[in-house]
Design a binder for these strands. Structure first.
Ligand SMILES: [Mn+2]
Ligand SMILES: [Mn+2]
Ligand SMILES: [Zn+2]
Ligand SMILES: [Zn+2]
Lengths: 125, 125
DNA sequence: TTTTTATTGCGACTTATTTGCAATAATAAG
DNA sequence: CTTATTATTGCAAATAAGTCGCAATAAAAA
């Protein structure tokens, strides 16, 4: 199932590239001029995640956020990293802090989802 | 607003005490013989969380899980700890592994929600 | 036994995400 | 350039988790 280039995909990727942060479907949609269907945006995001172009974060509000994986190449970001959700400005950022742990013997870890929440630098000032 | 003792509260606490794991509203309800209303169970759980009797974990499936705070007293469990969600048996346990990190300067962390997922010891065997 | 009001049940509601299906359009083929 | 193939989209409906208002119920105190 080869992928095709579409305006929607380009738009979504551009928004996520520019912000550098993790965004919700709604936030992404709002940043795009043209109207794109909700279901379509989700499908595009899910496909990007499948293809390893984006990574998904589930915050403690139960919502999904998507972030581009460019920063993930950084040594500090490699593998899994913490995320920070500002309860004030409602943004989520990828922190350059690796998640470090040693799973109990016998356990097989395939996924990591770590989200800190509080007040971000900007909002704290 | 003083709290009152009710069968529902007792039943919920007993189920959570016995399992020792973190459970979803649904799982808790299924373990209780008598039928209790969904909204009521959520209200009871939320109250327990407010009162510091339970703690809430939001897994990467977006669902909330509740665990009794007895183990939380353990030195290893004090403060925040990792949680593990088995994708096979769909259970969530509190791991005796503290979440360790140093937030970027300027950031104020008020909440921690860390969930590892994969295959648990029992299911891996 | 009566009073006070925390707690419950019920039904409706909200919000996030997914899914079926027919229409549309990107890309390959001729 | 035209046609064929099928990935992608839009729309509406469906799921699913969790919340809320309100009247009825039942702890706990008087
Ligand atoms: Mn990230
Ligand atoms: Mn726990
Ligand atoms: Zn902020
Ligand atoms: Zn398991």
């Amino acid at each position: 199932m080869e992928r095709r280039n579409t305006k929607t995909k380009e738009a979504v990727l551009e928004v996520l590239s520019k912000t550098g942060k993790a965004m919700s479907r709604e936030a992404i949609e709002n940043k795009i001029q043209t109207d794109i269907n909700r279901a379509t945006v989700y499908r595009v995001l899910n496909r990007f995640c499948d293809d390893g172009i984006l990574h998904r974060v589930v915050a403690d509000n139960g919502k999904q956020y998507f972030a581009i994986c460019t920063n993930c190449e950084d040594k500090a970001m490699a593998g899994n990293h913490f995320h920070f959700r500002c309860l004030n400005c409602e943004t989520i950022e990828c922190l350059p802090i690796p998640v470090d742990f040693t799973p109990p013997s016998g356990y097989l870890v395939s996924g990591v989802n770590c989200v800190l929440s509080g007040t971000c630098k900007d909002c704290a000032a």
